[in-house]
Amino acid sequence: MKKQRTNAIVTLYHKLGSPPSFYRISGYFLKWLLLISIALTCWGLYDGLVLAPADYQQGDSFRIIYVHVPAAWMSMFIYAVMGIAAIIAIIWRMKVAEAVMIASAPIGAWFTFLALVTGSLWGKPMWGTWWEWDARMTSELILLFLYIGIMATYGAFSEDARKAARMAALVAVVGLVNLPIIHFSVKWWSSIHQGTTVSLTGESHITWEMLRPLLYMAFATKFYYGYSMLKRARLYLLETESQKKWAHTVITENK
């Protein structure tokens, strides 16, 4: 019984590892990922902007949390996924891992950018400044630079997409190893340069009514990442395997 189960997992692994079946299997999920993400976003927006009570210290400005925190979470979550995919892509030369890795970079960069911009828009009314060189904002900015470096590497070798993806994967792995070092050194650095150390959430307790929309939005961004990443990964596979028969059947049968 148990043996059969592991076999099923192994076959699933092999199936997901081959571009045509990855393309086919991910095709079933795309629409649902997008629909669930849109539904959760609508629900989260209504819950967060209308139903949740205003914070007693920050008033209505705390509602920025519903886009800021999910974006910040996703910026790190996506980098982790991308780093793992990059390691697999380099060691086992698995094409699907390359696709997942390079497909994660643009959406990850977007979320990092959003975390910075919404953080700045939250900081202005709360701290009185658009930008504060505190540990979290500085690390987030460096994270954005890492994302940009990965995408720039991929773009620089555009004449050979596979080589470009493997180069970008190496940059991602080097960044992954460096991230903890960067994070802790920046944290240590900002603790020495005692600036205004105001935490965004302040002392206010977060109630269930306030937390609920945050969870909706957090899941909504995860599902949207799933959609955007899978769609990009499929396009990468289609483009790099455009000489293969399966790509031709996909194209001709689609329309």
Binding site: S61, V67, A71, L114, T118, W122, K124
Partner: peptide, 10 residues
Amino acid sequence: VYVWSSFGVF
């Protein structure tokens, strides 16, 4: 301004 531009840019 802050809330709507945050959601807008998102």
